[in-house]
């Protein structure tokens, strides 16, 4: 398959290039495809390849020493990932896994730098893309560092418990995130953490409060 020039033209990094300039970029771009669950890149690995998602979805995440996963971002078609190691040559700060069949365009960090030397105006595209990435991560750092999200999620669960099955409000993780003033990714992790502590059990479309007292203690730690 040939790399699609129209797709490259619309990607955040290469917007504004002329057809001839895009052709020189295309010569450096390669395709890679992955099936659901396959790792595209490992946390800590040195790969120095910038990827742009053509189709499918990629999850960017970090894993703690005890196996807990924190999603950093969900990358959809037209968006890029692995930008940081591609530009600084260091190890991948996070892992990337295909959430379904995925087609990617890749360009090595060296080739990306060569493109920048050849077409300096796109430097502003790079700056804009990296700045938006930093903004997103700062917001996530704020959520994870300063907000006691798990306590708020515990409170939301206790305040919205159904008197009997089928009688209470039903809430998505996005709605819980909006109520807790945090990101959906943080709610997912909080629910997992509450389950690990034995306070709740995720039972398909139900969140079963298995230890109400424990949940109250998490909500208002002494």
């Amino acid at each position: 398959m040939t790399v699609d020039l129209e797709f490259l033209k619309d990607s955040p990094y290469f917007a504004g290039l002329t057809p001839a300039q895009l052709q020189s970029v295309r010569d450096r771009v390669f395709e890679r495809s992955f099936d659901r669950g396959e790792m595209v890149s490992l946390e800590g690995e040195v790969s120095a390849t910038l990827y742009i998602v053509v189709s499918g979805v990629v999850k960017i995440f970090m894993t703690s020493a005890d196996g807990k996963e924190q999603i950093l971002s969900i990358v959809r078609p037209g968006e890029s990932f692995n930008d940081v190691p591609a530009f600084d040559g260091g190890p991948n700060p996070a892992g990337a896994r295909a959430m379904g069949p995925v087609l990617l365009y890749g360009i090595s960090g060296d080739d990306m730098k060569a493109v920048l030397w050849e077409h300096p105006p796109i430097a502003i595209n790079v700056v804009r893309t990296l700045a938006s990435r930093v903004r997103h991560l700062i917001s996530l750092v704020e959520d994870l560092s300063f907000k006691h999200v798990i306590g708020r999620v515990a409170r939301i669960l206790l305040e919205n418990v159904a008197g009997e099955i089928g009688s209470g409000p039903r809430m998505t993780q996005q709605e819980m995130a909006a109520m807790a003033g945090t990101a959906r990714e943080v709610v997912g992790r909080s629910l997992k953490s509450l389950e690990d502590r034995g306070a709740i059990r995720l039972d398909r479309h139900r969140i079963v409060i298995t230890d109400e007292e424990a949940l109250r203690r998490i909500m208002e730690p002494s």
Partner: peptide, 24 residues
Amino acid sequence: DWCADCELVCPNGAIACPFEIVLL
């Protein structure tokens, strides 16, 4: 199985996997 991946990836908020919260 309510993994909610569909909800997570939807760029338009068009899919919802709402939870019912119940006491054991």
